[in-house]
Design a protein around this nucleic acid. Structure first.
Lengths: 276, 276
DNA sequence: TGAAAATTGTTATATTATGTGAATTAATTA
DNA sequence: TAATTAATTCACATAATATAACAATTTTCA
């Protein structure tokens, strides 16, 4: 009879793994699985809910953003399905990214679900944010942050501002750091689907002292329509798995630092509540 | 014998999935499927209706709003509670507003849930839209419309662009019609909560050939912080109930036309319940 | 090591979800 | 239009789950 006990971080990982697999976990289920009391699991649920990694309902926990997760007076729109998938990886990446920011900096946030995860974690920090992403601007604006947007056109594929005017507006800003989301990484640089988006990203990179790319490992080796930037303009890549050898060498040769985010959920509650 | 019980969130997922698939679901259908009582399913329907994810009729539940089957993935963030409340009135107002627009015009859309209702109905029309509202821009952008936004700051209270830069950008545009949402109507003009918003609205009005105010009757006689505009700048007011005598006279004296949208509501409801 | 802090388990209490049958409302048919 | 039937709401009982307070345990760190 195996009746070993797990540590909090292990339990929480088990919870998230089950959740990702089944879409729903119940308290008694996990309590048995972890060989612990229901109360403990409830407290784990509470913890993970505060981080936005799950949503509690009566009798179970579900993926955040599902219809039932919405309380009646939800003001914020939920993220779409794509953002929910792989959220643990995104959360881990965002956590590392957060540590790159210092109080009172001006940062630029690009579009995409990983960058959104960062925006979510930024809430409450004393910084100024510039973003072309409508969801990010809305989310942070609602949270009381100082958010600026460029003028321009709203493109179909992504809810974001693009176009000549946007690039022009962008050129009048200067950022301490910009966080770029990309859809592909090949040996000659970072890639994105749409040409319009690429123009914006390039301009953003040009206006920043420091450029950080956020991407999850699913994009390794993928080449899309347009190249955003050569490696030489990027200072740091944050991802959650080590890139394949050749890619890694190209990156290192160009002086791009790489940070790997481990997805174990440990006690970062403290970090958050004390946080700045 | 499979007689397992499902959790609320699972049932609601099943309801939405069936709805998506068949376009219509009945209470007994789902009750059997979920192995639960009809009362519970009714309560689920009620819950989902409040989120705007389905519409109830006698004997069944159907897709809300437009008949075109929306994929669940692409379902837009549900509107906030305020938007859901009084949705029928807003729908009726939006329907009348829609008739004021002609193809290939350039129109400006202000913020607020009533204006959002209009934006939703505009989808697919060959027009150019300018908006300061993040939800509206996102909604229409996703639907493939040509949407422009000014640059500026995202204010806390409303998800919209405000500030000096926004007003400046706005002044470079000219609109055929602008649709303004307001939070108060008194005998000396239209009012709004926030001074920042008011500045934007005033600028919008100044750049338009024709100005139309959309408001529901709950705002009659209410005075807020700042006055947007005198009546003389407004051409048309669309609402769903006749304003009280004094207000009506002031409006008419200033040459503001008034349209009441009420009969449309019942007609629309029938249309929906008959299954389009 | 020992004291303080954090985590976990237990119990009693409160809250929420569900099921039932009667009362009400809406649709249907003669 | 009245009578009939089906669907819905309402009010209450019951079961399931969550919370809060406190005791027991483990971990941390001086």
């Amino acid at each position: 009879m195996t009746s070993r006990k797990y540590h909090a971080s292990q339990r929480r990982d088990m919870i998230l793994t089950s959740l990702e697999q089944d879409g729903l976990v119940t308290v008694p289920m996990i309590a048995k699985l972890c060989n612990t009391s229901e109360m403990t699991i409830r407290r784990d649920f509470e913890f993970l809910e505060e981080l936005g990694l799950l949503a509690r309902t009566h009798g179970a926990a579900i993926l955040p953003g599902s219809p039932s997760a919405k309380k009646f007076d939800t003001i914020e729109p939920s993220l779409d399905r794509r953002a929910i998938l792989n959220q643990r990886a995104k959360f881990a990446i965002a956590t590392l990214a957060l540590q790159q920011i210092e109080p009172n900096q001006t940062i630029a946030l690009d579009v995409g679900s990983t960058v959104f995860a960062l925006a979510d974690r930024i809430k409450g920090m004393p910084i100024r944010v510039f973003s072309t992403s409508l969801p990010i601007a809305r989310h942070l604006g609602q949270a009381g942050a100082k958010v600026y947007m460029p003028g321009g056109e709203v493109q179909g594929s992504e809810p974001s501002i693009v176009g000549v005017k946007a690039v022009e507006d962008l050129r009048r800003f200067h950022f301490d750091i910009s966080f770029i989301g990309v859809s592909g990484l090949a040996e000659d640089g970072f890639y994105d689907y749409s040409i319009e988006e690429t123009e914006i990203k390039s301009a953003m990179v040009a206006q920043s002292k420091r450029n950080i790319v956020l991407m999850d490992s699913s994009k390794f080796g993928r080449v899309s329509v347009a190249r955003i930037s050569e490696f030489s303009n990027i200072d740091l890549l944050i991802t959650e798995q080590t890139p394949p050898g050749p890619l890694q060498e190209s990156l290192k040769a160009a002086g791009v630092e790489i940070l790997i985010a481990s997805s174990v959920v440990t006690k970062m509650k403290k970090e958050i509540s004390n946080g700045f």
